[in-house]
Design a protein around this nucleic acid. Sequence first.
DNA 1: GATGCCCGTTAAACAACTGC
DNA 2: GCAGTTGTTTAACGGGCATC
Length: 246
Amino acid sequence: MAHASIKVSEHSWSTRVKTADDAVRFVNHMGFCLLFPVKNVPLPSLYYAMARRVPITWDKYTAKLWEWKDELPRKRRAFYAKYFKTRGTFISLKLLPHFLAMRESSAAPEAAERFYSAGRISHDARAIWQALAEHGAMATLELRHASKMETKAGNERFKKAMLELQCLLIVTHFGAEQETDAWASNRLELVARAFPAHVAAARDITPEAARAVLAQKYRSLYPEAPAMQVARLFGWSKAEAEAALA
DNA sequence: GATGCCCGTTAAACAACTGC
DNA sequence: GCAGTTGTTTAACGGGCATC
């Protein structure tokens, strides 16, 4: 019962999250959390901490959360990217170096070519990375233009490559921008530029040590979680998860 | 060998503009 | 006024594969 365990953990947070300060405290306490609860993904979510109910609707909580996902990274109060299950995820600044070390992706802005040669990223991901390295932070449409993915088909490739880069913690959301008169789009930046100190700190942490810290943090939230669940969530092998929990 | 998770695709919803 | 764009999100579906 995934939802049951979600509630158990979030009930350990006694007060309702109302302000941006509350949200930062919540993220710091949990270490990492989702924006919205996701079925079969046993992680705390900010939406639940605010609304205290599961069905997600378009309400005042959603609207506020929407602002925070732009505001908190821009003010460097928390890290935000699509991470767990490619869904919106906040990571505390304290644990960011461990996530980077665990993914072995504490990369300099000019490392795109090396990652591509090593087979770690796709051709499209390399194009986006290099565009950001050359021009700095950009909003979605601007970046698509710079990466030559302006067509409808190009947008599909762009979205896919963007997920790839966010799950590797190479690119992050870094504020919002009103590009058209419709909805605001995201401003995107290389993690190495937005959080340089955290990327540097990650280089002093081994993947094994990083996994141990993250696994034990997770166990403190979900004491009942079996090793297999931890492995699936973080994308580790069963053996890696067991070693991290030991 | 069966069960269940993963991933990709697809559709829906939201707000607002453009063009017919 | 409606259809079709744009951006964003989640939910649903189905095939393939891993784990037990």
